[in-house]
Computed example of a mutant assay.
Amino acid sequence: MTSDSLLAAYLSPFGIVAETHWQARAPRTSDIYFAKGQRMNFLIRWLVTAVAVGAAIWIVPGITIVSASSWAGIAVFALVLSLINISIKPIMQILSLPISVLTLGIFYLVVNTLMLYLAAWLANGIFSIGIIISSFGAAFVASIVISIVSGIVNSLVEND
């Protein structure tokens, strides 16, 4: 027995197929669908965030829209917030892990509030469209509302 067949015999009971040689291949259609699925996943995340931000603006009194069209302001702010949640928020959650452990996870609400402030600052600074947050308390309540509404809408949208 060669080493390749020993490796295959060892891994096959676990459902693992060992390939010992690599070949260049053209992209499969499943690879293309995976890329489209990732784009669709981000679009769904953006729409869910837009619905959640719209609910927070409607419910929380200290949050106001800065734009001629309210839906354009919500859409731009939701886009910036979605991009921040994908890129910066995981880093902030890792950095704040010791405090979150001490507070039993409640500090993640503060991280969400800071991400809301950052998204408002970026959207207003770059696009001159977005939201204005009047106080930390309003941002804190808005982050809770956005989390709850996003969770509800995500549970309705998921097709797994």
Rank of each mutant, 00 (worst) to 15 (best):
G54A: 15
I65Q: 03
A26E: 12
A72K: 15
L81S: 10
I146S: 00
T29R: 14
A68L: 15
P98Q: 13
S30R: 06
V48F: 01
M1F: 10
A72F: 15
G15C: 10
A26C: 11
V53W: 01
S96P: 10
D4V: 09
V66Q: 14
R25I: 12
I74Q: 10
M1D: 07
V110W: 08
V110F: 06
S3I: 13
E158S: 11
V145H: 01
L79C: 11
W46A: 03
A8M: 05
A139M: 00
G54W: 09
G62S: 04
G130D: 02
T64P: 04
I144G: 01
I74M: 13
F140S: 00
I129G: 10
D160V: 09
L47N: 09
A35E: 10
S134V: 09
P98F: 07
I146K: 04
F127K: 11
V157Y: 04
I88Q: 02
G125V: 05
N41Q: 15
L122M: 02
V101R: 12
V51L: 06
S147Y: 02
S150M: 02
A8W: 05
L102W: 10
S143L: 00
K89C: 05
V48G: 01
N154I: 12
S87G: 09
T2R: 14
G15F: 05
S69E: 15
S82K: 10
P27Q: 06
Y10P: 11
S143A: 03
Y33T: 14
N154R: 11
L6I: 15
I131G: 06
Q93C: 09
Q38V: 11
M1H: 09
P98L: 04
T113P: 00
I106C: 01
I16H: 11
T113Y: 02
S69N: 15
F107C: 02
A120Q: 02
S96T: 07
S155H: 08
V101K: 15
I106Y: 05
I132L: 13
V60G: 02
P90T: 11
E19Y: 10
A123D: 08
A26W: 11
V145Y: 00
A24C: 14
S12F: 06
I131F: 07
G15R: 07
